[in-house]
């Protein structure tokens, strides 16, 4: 497996963004928590095999938004969604669509590393076992492969039987990434994956994102603008202008453009640190 060069801290993405087809499209999305209108009129494409970053001040609905792509919000009672979200052209909110199967195809990494209280091996094998793989050799291969892709194999290959919770925070997060990779998702949602871990691990996770995006469509929510600039090919900026009112998508473009020549005054203010 070839390693991408370590990303440089600059607004230019390490590689030119591929202008691939849209993996996901969102049209006219409205989102509600009970009476609270959280997001309004969001229309955005997510390009295939690229990294798209969602940025914005806290409370701007970016975490809510990312959870719409694997219907994680379904688990919160009282939430409601209008508009259309498609994966490969198909409406994921159409009646009868199985959110469980959708979540296998659209994996997710959370802010808090959340390994299950079981061994490292069992953590990674959890997904494949769910989906009916029981053969030991097949599981072994998947576990090694996934840990390798998550940049963790070298560190844990001798301690696979040890509890996942005994790892450091950064290792735990990579274990969670390995766990998701083991079910071979097409899309990877990362909800502030680096905000609860140490800087060295952040570097490792950013490295592996650069490799993973060759094969997987990645969406990352981050409050760290340097990180968005380093890792993403496209950036969407969200803003809740008035407290208590719905947040909107202010600007979406190639990351280079958003960070060097934003079209919207509000984006510019945010990026230059004038508010948020």
């Amino acid at each position: 497996m070839t390693r991408m060069p370590a990303p440089i801290v600059s607004p230019t993405p390490a590689a030119p963004a591929p202008d691939g087809p849209d993996k996901i499209t969102v049209k006219g999305l409205e989102f509600y928590y009970g009476d609270f209108h959280a997001l309004t009129d969001v229309t955005v494409p997510i390009k295939s095999t690229a990294v798209t970053a969602f940025i914005g001040p806290s409370g701007c609905g970016k975490s809510t938004f990312i959870r719409c792509f694997n219907r994680m919000n379904d688990l919160i009672p009282g939430t409601r969604l209008e508009g259309k979200v498609t994966l490969d052209g198909q409406d994921i909110y159409a009646p009868g669509v199985d959110p469980v199967d959708l979540r296998r195809r659209v994996g997710m990494i959370f802010q808090q590393p959340n390994p299950f209280p079981m061994s490292i091996y069992d953590n990674v094998a959890f997904g494949p076992r769910l989906h009916g793989i029981t053969k030991k050799s097949e599981l072994d291969d998947l576990v090694r492969d996934s840990l390798d892709r998550a940049n963790l194999w070298k560190e844990v290959k001798d301690i696979l039987g040890r509890g996942g919770l005994t790892l450091s925070g950064g290792q735990q997060q990579r274990l969670c990434i390995a766990r998701v990779l083991a079910v071979q998702p097409e899309v990877l949602l990362m909800d502030e994956p680096c905000s609860a871990i140490d800087p060295t691990s952040v570097q490792k996770i950013e490295d592996l994102m650069a490799v993973l995006k060759e094969s997987i469509t990645i969406i990352i929510v981050t409050h760290n603008m340097q990180q968005a600039a380093r890792v993403s090919d496209f950036t969407a900026f969200f803003l809740q202008e008035v407290a208590g009112e719905a947040a909107v998508l202010v600007e979406y473009d190639r990351t280079t453009n958003v960070f060097t020549s934003p079209r919207d005054k509000r984006t510019e203010d945010y990026i230059t640190g004038r508010f948020g």
Binding site: M72, R103, N114, H131, V180, V183
Partner: peptide, 17 residues
């Protein structure tokens, strides 16, 4: 913790799983 459940749902587990 709630996030343990999220991890499982996020991998495509049903409620019972």
């Amino acid at each position: 913790p709630k996030y343990i459940r999220w991890g499982s749902y996020g991998l495509g587990a049903t409620k019972w799983q």
